[in-house]
Design a protein around this nucleic acid. Structure first.
Length: 569
RNA sequence: CGGGGCGUAGCGCAGUUUGGUAGCGCGCACGGUUCGGGACCGUGAGGUCGGAGGUUCAAAUCCUCUCGCCCCGACCA
């Protein structure tokens, strides 16, 4: 296509509202425009990239036997009420009423709808398994849309759902998806990890996320380079490195006595640690929490953070105790609480096993030194700290690495969470009614695009992976009024098109500098520069955007060079 | 939802402290000169200063309310 006929509104300056690199570049290069918070218009270039991403997704989904369908974006509330999510999901769901006053919502996902379909149509084990998918718009009234296209309130998602007779079938569907996802992200040219993730509200036991490393990512994962363990910190297990020896008397053999030390007005770990000149890892942080069965104490090492989700999975919903509640329960103010000398239920982090520690003395203005877990207090032991880089891997002990990532896809084993309430059942060979076992699998194509830009750019602009670039080649014609240049450009343009390459030809009446700058900004993987300099010698220039490497070649060699670049020889 | 920041021409910004009737750069239009890394000269178009109310002879500027956008946190199928 000709540049002069395409709408590519490039910007010389960076719009003030953009922060993330992908956001800045997509605005500057004329890919997207913002309509409102979390709502974006995809201009021709962005839409071309999206179409290529979607094409790859479709090919790989089709390859595992998934069938493309399309479901409405507008849903009746009734179905969401049946699964309980109408009530469970809060402000994140866009809700409205139709003219008849019926409650409706804009779909944030399609488990309910597709399960309804399955419940209506699937009768027999002979109908199973099935895998259905769509690439369609989702609506979520995000509390905080951010980073351009990365977190929006309306977005396109590839969502697929598997229907199987049993867990074994689900496992197969799940693995097929995992493999398809690997191929998809690989083909899209992304660096990515598959990590263990928290099934969260989706229910079900197993879930993985596909994560593209990027500083702009809002998720954090830990990775073990030795054994391959990789998990979202939302659930990652780890072994914090050992506590710094602090000369506590309790380090000695046997149940040594504890010692109370005056620590007036020193309440936080940081304060007491500074006051006593002891490393934070020598402390036990004692948090008074109110759980379903009343107050209890959560204990983590002074240098660790309590992981609320982990704790919640163990004890159920809980909240922090108010200041006056703390006083009522233990008779001492927050800041001087310790795990010893009382019978309150305790859940302690595994990092506290062994050693001796300092903690609140349970009397105002004092801390106790030499507390030995196990002998000075009894607790239930769990991993309830937040895993972080440097911790030991829970599988092999090697050091974990921490990385920020963009979630580009996820796969969930749903089990019967939706098929049961919606009565999606089938009859097996024995005529027995069984509940369909489901899986749910998502990919965010816009996040693939954004992640690709985040991972591939330089100070001049975007550098698209070959597979998802809006164009394969950009022909930069310097001085558009020169007939010889235009003829050469036109010839190459046609030859490339005949070979089914997507070609962008910059035929604008612009100065060379502007064309070079725009070409680099747009990020088409390679450029054919046609200018008088080289053409005098009968040559054109072939430039790789990524490396800026430029070679002079005969115009007649252009197609061959580009075929070679694209591996089509 | 809590904390912070910002709304002035299409974009980036100054002007707000100390009220006096809106400016710079880029872009845009036209003419001319240029033409291998975002050219130059000249002419010109373009603004309810986010909105509402108030104070004042006079409000972009002061006061009150409100809307929007961005960032941090909480939240996040």
């Amino acid at each position: 296509m000709k540049f002069s006929q395409l709408f590519i509104p490039t910007l010389r300056e960076t719009p003030a509202e953009a922060e993330a690199i992908s956001h800045i570049l997509m605005l500057r290069a004329g890919y997207v425009r913002q309509l409102a918070a979390g709502l974006y218009i995809y201009l021709p270039l962005a839409w071309r990239a999206m179409k290529r991403i979607n094409a790859i997704i479709k090919e790989e989904m089709d390859a595992i036997g998934a069938q493309e369908i399309s479901m409405p974006g507008l849903h009746p509330a009734e179905i969401w009420e049946k699964t309980g999510r109408w009530g469970e999901i809060g402000d994140e769901m866009f809700r409205l009423k139709d003219r008849g006053g019926r409650d409706m919502c804009l779909g944030m996902t399609h488990e309910e709808i597709i399960t309804w379909l399955a419940s209506m149509e699937i009768r027999s084990y002979r109908d199973l398994p099935q895998m259905w998918y769509q690439i369609q718009t989702k609506f979520r009234d995000e509390a905080r849309p951010k980073s351009g296209i990365l977190r929006t309130r309306e977005f396109i998602m590839k969502d697929s759902y598997s229907f199987d007779r049993d867990e074994k079938g689900l496992e197969e569907s799940y693995q097929k998806h995992a493999e398809a996802y690997h191929r998809i992200f690989q083909r899209c040219g992304l660096a990515f990890y598959q990590v263990e993730s928290d099934p969260g509200m989706m229910g079900g036991a197993t879930a993985h996320e596909f994560m593209a490393p990027s500083p702009a990512g809002e998720d954090t994962i830990v990775i073990c380079d030795k054994c391959g363990y990789a998990a979202n910190v939302e659930l990652a297990l780890s072994i914090p490195v050992g506590a710094t020896p602090c000369g506590c008397t309790g380090q000695a053999q046997g149940p040594a006595p504890t010692e109370d030390i005056a620590t007036p007005d020193k309440r936080t770990v940081a304060e007491v640690s500074a006051f006593l000149e002891a490393d934070p890892s020598c402390f036990i942080k004692s948090l008074v929490l109110i759980g379903p069965e009343g107050p209890f104490l959560a204990l983590v090492r002074g240098d660790q953070e309590l992981h609320e989700k982990k704790l919640q999975r163990i004890i159920g919903a809980f909240r922090a105790a108010q200041k006056d509640e703390v006083k009522e329960i233990l008779g001492v103010g927050a800041g001087f609480i310790g795990p010893h000398n009382h019978k309150l239920k305790k859940i302690a982090d595994i990092s506290l096993k062994g050693g001796a520690y300092i903690s609140g003395a349970n009397k105002e203005g004092f801390h106790t030194r030499g507390i030995k877990p196990g002998s000075h207090f009894v607790a239930e032991w769990h991993d309830i700290h937040v895993a972080k880089g440097g911790d030991g891997c829970s599988q092999c002990g090697a050091a974990l690495r921490e990385e920020n990532v963009i979630e580009i896809g996820n796969i969930f084993k749903l089990g019967t969470k939706y098929s049961q309430p919606l009565r999606a059942v089938y009859l097996d060979e024995n005529g027995e009614e069984k509940t369909i076992v489901m899986g749910s699998y998502g990919i965010g194509p816009a996040r693939i695009a954004a992640a690709a830009v985040e991972q591939n750019n330089d100070s001049d602009g975007i550098i698209w992976p070959l597979s998802i670039a809006p164009f394969d080649v950009e022909i930069v014609v310097l001085s558009g009024d020169d007939k010889e240049l235009a003829d050469t450009a036109g010839r190459i343009y046609r030859e490339l098109q005949d070979e089914k390459f997507e070609v962008l030809m910059d035929d604008r009446d612009e100065r060379p500098g502007v064309k070079f700058k725009d070409a680099d900004l747009l990020g088409v993987p390679c450029q054919i520069i046609i200018g008088k300099k080289a053409l005098k010698e009968g040559l054109v220039e072939f430039k790789i955007r990524k490396t800026k490497e430029t070679v002079r070649i005969a115009p007649s060699d252009t197609v061959a060079r580009i075929k070679e670049l694209y591996g089509r020889v």
